[in-house]
Design a protein around this nucleic acid. Sequence first.
DNA 1: GTCCAGGGTAAGC
DNA 2: GCTTACCATGGA
Length: 268
Amino acid sequence: MITIFSGNFNLRQIADSGQCFRLKMLDDSQAYVIAGGRLLHIAEKGGGRLELSCNEAEYGSFWQDYFDMDSDYSVYIGAIDPGDDFLKKAAEFGRGIRILRQEPFETLISFIISQRKNIPAIQSSVEKLCRLCGKRIGEEAYAFPSPKALASLSEKELSDCSLGYRTPYVREAARRVEAGEADLDAMKKLSDEELYEELVSFYGVGKKVANCVMLFAYHRIGAFPVDVWIKRIEDGHYGGRFPVERYPGFAGVLQQYMFFYSRFEKER
DNA sequence: GTCCAGGGTAAGC
DNA sequence: GCTTACCATGGA
């Protein structure tokens, strides 16, 4: 176990931010995260102190990058237009959110599944897939399936994970990656535009899902996914379109604050 | 029972 | 280029 310190880090907020479907809260300050075939326990101890159930080497080689610990989020928040009261409130409310660096394959499949589902339903489908063909890495803990494992599932097995009409989308994406027709790792070196074009070339991946994969897997924090929640905000607060050009290269971070804030607001 | 969800595709204009 | 019907399912 190691102890680290971080500002702008709140487990509950990250868990509820809709970017990751494999972060499970145990109580208000503890969680399990499954990523990269690893299982991590995190506990928040107050004052920005975090206890992680890994050693220094594993932190340095994986989790530090996963949680984007080298970025200072106060810089993004500080760049917000002082006249934009809505965005200032949203950022203040969700200031513990960080943009994770998740695995491209898991993110691609998860967000293909996400279309027209609410977050609990997405988590449920992803969990079923992992239990069905992901490697067991702990008590009741399963890694996200490999492309090979996912590509070998039958249509019925996939369908039984409540994928509905998305079943062929998932199947084809897994097959294409497994066959080497798309190299998700090699795509890391592409420009934003090239990466976007590669992603939307997947059957079942459109503008919104491609932007989510860019933001949450490839850490292209300028990507700005527009779903029904963000569209509602754009219409209600920005005359139909958020001024992404005012925040060159990091509008995606602000998008997360707004998404999280608006979902909370709706709950009351 | 009804409404809605981190949308995309294909067909039609 | 821009609309529109249709898609399956579960959570609230």
